[in-house]
């Protein structure tokens, strides 16, 4: 660890890549349950998830309740990470998740339940890709959007 101790900034900004993956697993579970519950219960669950996404997007992925759970319960049981990761990509992914859950809430609130469910389904695809394959869908879509619009 002598090499890393000389660069405190890298230490401070890097996060354990398994943290966002753990967060994505919990997120996927919440979204999956929301899809099989009646609309009223689903709305509450999706609203809670939207709040989690909002915390991750505005205050950073290390500040979510999921990250706290990871630090206190999961990380002590794991081997140290082989490398640290930039928190910007998972934070951006939280913003994308927030956008999908907001669309879902609009769907549920206006009675267009199918819109709500499809939006939750898309967020679930992204969360599963992150949890199972450590793959950030929103991050890839970002360049495609830039290419198409800018």
């Amino acid at each position: 660890m002598t090499a890393t101790s000389s660069s405190p900034t890298a230490q401070r900004t890097g996060i354990d890549p398994r943290g966002p993956q753990f967060t994505a697993a919990l997120t996927a579970a919440v979204l999956a349950v929301a899809l099989v519950l009646p609309a009223a219960a689903a709305t509450v669950l999706v609203a809670v998830q939207a709040v989690f996404f909002a915390i991750g997007a505005t205050r950073g992925v290390q500040r979510t309740p999921h990250a706290w759970l990871f630090r206190t319960l999961v990380r002590p049981r794991l081997a140290p990470p082989s490398e640290l990761e930039d928190p910007a990509p998972p934070r951006f992914a939280q913003t994308v998740g927030l956008a999908f859950t907001v669309v879902a809430l609009v769907g549920f609130a206006t009675g267009v339940t199918l819109l709500g469910q499809v939006a939750v389904g898309l967020a679930l695809v992204a969360a599963l890709l992150n949890a199972v394959f450590a793959f950030c869908l929103g991050c890839e879509v970002y360049l495609l959007l830039k290419r198409a619009t800018a």
């Binding site: 999956a32 899809l35 099989v36 695809v125």
Partner: peptide, 8 residues
């Protein structure tokens, strides 16, 4: 909802 879940 279940169909969307399975599809996802």
């Amino acid at each position: 909802g279940l169909v969307v879940l399975i599809a996802a």
